[in-house]
Amino acid sequence: MPRTPVYREIINDIRTAIETGQLKPGDRLPTIAALCEQYQASNTPVKTAMRLLEEMGLIETWQGKGMYVRQRTGSGQNIT
């Protein structure tokens, strides 16, 4: 069975943390560098995951300030 791509693993982990309340609206996410280290990946899949999470409406990014869990306005989209 092929391994799950790193970007999907990151998306699933962060989405689960948000859905279970481990991460709450307004919480700051780890930096790109910290996520690269945590998942032992380059910054490309990490940035892809963050971009997709933002497109799904789960997080918001602020240049120079970081990435934060967004206020929930509805359910997130599925990613395949």
Results as ranks from 00 to 15, higher is better:
5 P>C: 05
55 E>L: 10
4 T>L: 05
34 A>D: 15
22 Q>W: 06
60 E>H: 13
71 Q>L: 09
27 D>T: 10
68 Y>M: 08
47 K>L: 12
65 K>G: 00
68 Y>N: 01
9 E>W: 05
28 R>F: 05
13 D>N: 08
43 N>H: 11
64 G>A: 09
60 E>S: 03
30 P>L: 13
68 Y>E: 01
45 P>T: 05
79 I>P: 00
36 C>A: 05
23 L>M: 11
40 Q>I: 02
20 T>H: 03
1 M>T: 12
13 D>S: 12
23 L>Q: 03
1 M>N: 12
28 R>Y: 06
30 P>G: 07
16 T>Q: 02
5 P>Q: 03
73 T>G: 06
12 N>K: 15
27 D>C: 11
16 T>R: 13
17 A>P: 01
9 E>N: 07
69 V>E: 01
1 M>H: 13
35 L>T: 05
25 P>E: 03
56 M>W: 00
22 Q>F: 12
58 L>S: 05
35 L>F: 09
60 E>W: 04
33 A>K: 15
80 T>Q: 13
51 R>V: 05
74 G>E: 11
54 E>W: 01
76 G>D: 03
43 N>W: 02
26 G>P: 06
64 G>C: 07
16 T>C: 02
41 A>F: 06
67 M>S: 13
32 I>A: 13
6 V>K: 14
44 T>L: 08
32 I>V: 15
78 N>S: 14
47 K>P: 00
26 G>D: 13
61 T>N: 05
2 P>L: 08
